[in-house]
Design a protein around this nucleic acid. Structure first.
Length: 360
DNA sequence: AAACCGGGGCG
DNA sequence: CGCCCAGGTTT
């Protein structure tokens, strides 16, 4: 009995694909459970979504496990010591996320009775929650029909509709297309399915179009190279900045550390003393930024690439006799460096001066 | 609208 | 190892 039937809508194709291929992740509720009315804990959804901003699933997993073990509820996190939160976040990058995470937990715990808002608008009013994260939490935790648009979804819709407008100008057009696609039934699963599709099939390079549930609907496939989508505005070159870092070790085997200012680059994180990072430093050996006069030995440079500049740090080392001259810093025993709020660039500098400092 | 924010993964 | 990827806030 060959009845003519309407072609399946993209949303149905994606949901069917998701039911077969969804990934089990620590912050997720599987589709069969969700079908039984089980929703994931908004706290865990929020925490995972903030961690996943600009960060891969693989990198997030261990941090998510650590945070949910140490702070099982949003109220636990709100009561936590901010310094402990920064230490636990060290290595994940974009440290303003950690500061806003703590602020947001406090607002939810002490201003909303420990209950997350269940609407996009209510969520977006919280620190560290923008368009994407508000829509994602509303959809995933509360099954709201919100249009979830992240980098993965941008790729999927730009290819599906062959959008020629470059990002970021194309965002509103893309969001409207996602809104039009989003089904009344299972909007939370749909949002996760679209992001999974972009992460695993509709990838930036070498997409697996043969496996894509939307390949029959795709306006790019067969007409142009999918890798050329989404179109993007040209980006500008990264400038180079130079600086000096000073790794002082005392007789007890401790390293001199200090805390950076609360805002801006690596805000609130720990560092070794050093110079400002500017276009050029005076001469090959500028010791004027050293924390105290000493027999500073040059031990090479480390390079670290930030979002908008490349840093080349000249590293100096010295052994000091006393336990004074710490200034506004403190002496941290080498064996306990791992627990400090040290960003990756500072670990590189310390390792350059003292190869065994982190006991790899 | 543009600038400011890190780190990891892939070819 | 160069290149690419990815949201929110601030200015």
């Amino acid at each position: 009995m060959t009845q003519s039937r309407r072609p399946a809508a993209p949303a149905d194709l994606i949901l069917a694909w998701y039911d077969r291929h969804h990934r089990d992740l620590p912050w997720r509720v599987s589709p069969p459970m969700a079908a039984g009315g089980i929703r994931p804990d908004p706290y865990r959804v929020w925490l995972s979504e903030v961690m996943l901003q600009q960060t891969t699933v693989q990198a997030v997993k261990a941090y998510f496990a650590l945070f949910t073990t140490r702070w099982p509820t949003v109220t636990d996190l709100a009561k936590a010591d901010t310094e402990d939160v920064m230490k636990s976040w060290a290595g994940l990058g974009y440290y303003a996320r950690a500061r806003n995470l703590k602020k947001c937990a406090e607002v939810v715990a002490f201003g909303h009775g420990g209950v997350f808002p269940d609407t996009e608008e209510g969520l977006k009013a919280l620190p560290g929650i923008g368009d994407y994260t508000a829509a994602a939490i509303a959809a995933i935790a509360f099954d709201r029909q919100s249009a979830v648009l992240d980098g993965n979804v941008e790729r999927v819709v730009s290819r599906l509709h062959a959008i020629e407008t470059p990002l970021p100008a194309a965002k509103s057009e893309m969001r409207a297309l996602v809104a039009a696609m989003t089904p009344r039934e299972r909007p939370g699963d749909f949002a996760q399915a679209m992001m999974d599709l972009g992460a695993t099939i509709c990838t930036p390079r070498r997409p697996a179009c043969a496996l894509c549930p939307l390949n029959a609907d795709c306006r790019v496939l067969g007409r142009a190279d999918p890798e050329l989508y989404p179109r993007k505005a040209a980006k500008k070159a990264k400038p180079v900045r130079l600086g000096a870092a000073f790794v002082a070790e005392n007789a007890a085997g401790a390293i001199l550390l200090r805390k950076r200012g609360e805002s801006g680059l690596l805000g609130g994180m720990t560092e070794v003393p050093g110079s400002d990072w500017t276009a050029r430093i005076d001469g090959a050996t500028d010791l004027s930024a050293a924390p105290f006069p000493a027999d500073w030995t040059a031990c090479g440079t480390v390079t670290h690439v930030f979002t908008h500049f490349e840093l080349r740090l000249s590293v100096y080392r010295s052994m000091v006799a006393g336990n004074g001259q710490a200034g506004n810093g403190w002496w941290q025993p080498k064996e306990t460096l791992d627990g400090e709020a040290l960003p990756t660039v500072m670990k590189k500098a310390i390792r350059q001066a003292i190869p065994g400092a982190f006991g790899k």
